[in-house]
Design a protein around this nucleic acid. Structure first.
Length: 208
DNA sequence: TTCGAGATCGGA
DNA sequence: CCGATCTCGAAT
């Protein structure tokens, strides 16, 4: 996150240009940042990158009404509905016209925890937001939030606190992506106990 | 601790 | 027909 120095005390949300880079860089740099929606959120500990040339990217087969945000300007929330019951949230990355984004897969609940507990219907901290659909449900993210800019309220992405040591980030295969198209584009904070799947069951791969 | 089925619906 | 998933119950 070299071009985006962390703040001393008063957190300024990361600007739109933070997301105008390769989804791989954005995904890695988001680890340790704070994601907020409507006062609820916490420290991001797991992300995945999806790029247009990648068959499992929703934008691989061209622009549609559903994936339009992925093709739009960077820094907007791409929310999709899947498995007939779940929402997942991405942050569009790279240039307008290019389909790329970062899937928010897990965070450590810090703010608005009571709201998260209510929306999730359970209170186990380890299960509140550890998984893309869990995270979306915990924060109350659904269709309505599709396309919102993440640098403006009620959304915010805050940089890592200054002084805090940079998290150790490891890369693994992406979850739920079948073998052929697999790439080491899942990024995790190795020290976190709030991953959607423990590092012990998702072998670290070279980031190349 | 790990595995498999079912839930449930819009997209290709 | 199947997915960028989750939960629960059963087996290990």
């Amino acid at each position: 996150m070299s071009d985006f120095p962390s703040h001393p005390a008063s957190p300024e949300p990361l600007p739109q240009r933070f997301f105008a880079r390769s989804a791989l860089e954005v995904a890695r740099d988001l680890i340790g940042c704070t994601f907020l929606f409507g006062g609820a959120g916490g420290r991001i500990v797991e992300t995945e990158a999806y790029r247009q040339d990648d068959p499992c990217c929703h934008g691989f087969r061209g622009k549609t009404e559903r994936n339009a945000v992925l093709f739009g300007p960077p820094g907007h929330l791409y929310v999709y509905f899947t498995y007939g019951m779940h929402f997942c949230a991405n942050i569009a990355s790279e240039d307008e016209g290019v389909a790329a984004g970062v899937l928010l897969r897990a965070l450590e609940p810090e703010y608005g925890v009571e709201d998260m507990v209510a929306r999730r219907g359970m209170s186990e901290p380890r299960l509140l937001a550890s998984g893309p659909a869990r995270l979306a449900q915990a924060l109350g993210i659904g269709r309505t939030q599709n396309g919102l800019p993440v640098w403006e309220p009620p959304l915010a992405v805050l940089p890592r606190p200054a002084g805090a040591p940079a998290p150790e980030v490891a890369t693994t295969a992406r979850i739920g992506v079948r073998g052929n198209d697999q790439k080491p584009w899942r990024f995790v904070d190795t020290a976190s106990r709030h991953l959607s799947r423990p590092l012990s069951r998702t072998p670290i791969l070279p980031s190349g």
